[in-house]
């Protein structure tokens, strides 16, 4: 029997369904909370310990909140060194946990992203206010955590909105107006939900209004490529008119399965059958 370790942290219902999908594909599953793990290193090498696990020796499904990036990255390094398959690769959590870095990485691979400026401090924004096509999205960060997000429709609004802001970095990104496609990438397959824009075109309707759509071949390729560049075989890629807005190293499989009618838990288990 094939073994798989699910090292996860977060939503329990979703992980229970994924575990079931793995079992149905003939895997023996060991589900462990990431917070219960300890990695030890000495001159004889590294080892991972958990209360119900003596070593990592099979494929690993790894999913945690991005806040655990500093723990996940050495763990991914360990998994890779052991030659084990995991649906996320080294650097995936570093890239996902820093939106500024992610945009820069995608742009360096010629993935279409909206024109973006990343500011070392908020004061700098004023000096660049005339450099954008409006509207723009402004995101303010403090120690890497997004603390504020707003839309500015003119240079004056941009300057006014940042005057009250507290934080140490900011991203100002030109708005790509239109519906946003949430793409679940599972290996070479893409499953998409379209979240329609409101009348104003800048804001989006609630997620409950999202509907399944079929992407063009080019859009599918963009989503897969963006996920891969960000180190993920399983990822959610947000697309708007061909521009990549964000990549997350996990998929809300429950939501996509309900809305698209395709079983993404099963698709993920098939991916591990093929690559694990």
């Amino acid at each position: 029997m094939k073994n798989i370790i699910m090292a996860v942290e977060g939503e329990k219902k979703r992980f229970a369904l994924l575990r079931q999908a793995f079992i149905e594909k003939g895997f023996s599953v060991n589900l462990i909370p990431v917070r219960g793990l300890t990695i030890f290193t000495d001159m004889s090498g590294s080892r991972v310990k958990a209360s119900n696990l003596s070593s990592f020796s099979s494929a690993v499904y790894l999913e945690t909140p991005l806040a655990l990036a500093q723990f996940v990255e050495p763990l991914l390094d360990y998994i890779e060194l052991k030659g084990l398959y995991c649906q996320v690769h080294k650097k995936a959590y570093y890239v996902a946990s820093n939106e500024m870095l992610q945009l820069s990485v995608l742009n360096s691979y010629n993935i279409k992203i909206p024109p973006t400026r990343i500011f070392g401090n908020i004061e700098q924004i004023k000096k660049s206010a005339d450099k954008f096509s409006y509207p723009v999205i402004v995101k303010i960060y403090k120690d890497g955590e997004k603390i504020q997000s707003m839309i500015a429709k003119s240079p004056e609004e941009l300057v006014a909105s940042t005057e009250r802001a507290q934080g140490n970095n900011a991203i100002v990104r030109e708005c790509i107006e239109g519906d946003v496609d949430y793409c679940a990438v599972i290996g070479d397959e893409v499953f998409a939900l379209r979240r329609p824009s409101k009348d104003s075109a800048v804001a989006l309707q609630p997620m409950k209004n999202a509907r399944p759509i079929r992407l063009s071949k080019t859009e599918e390729e963009t989503a897969i490529q963006a996920a891969s560049i960000c180190g993920c075989d399983v990822a959610t890629v947000k697309l708007c008119r061909g521009f990549v807005l964000k990549v997350k190293p996990y998929v809300n499989m429950l939501l996509f399965t309900r809305r698209t009618g395709r079983n993404l838990f099963e698709k993920t288990a098939e991916l591990f059958e093929e690559r694990g």
Binding site: L37, T38, F40, T41, S46, P74, D77
Partner: peptide, 23 residues
């Protein structure tokens, strides 16, 4: 990342002492 540093160096034979990382 002090733990990651030790991990990387130890795996290439640079002398270190037992070090761990917990979440």
């Amino acid at each position: 990342h002090k733990y990651y540093t030790i991990k990387k160096l130890a795996e290439h034979g640079i002398p270190c002492v037992l070090t761990s990382l917990s979440a």
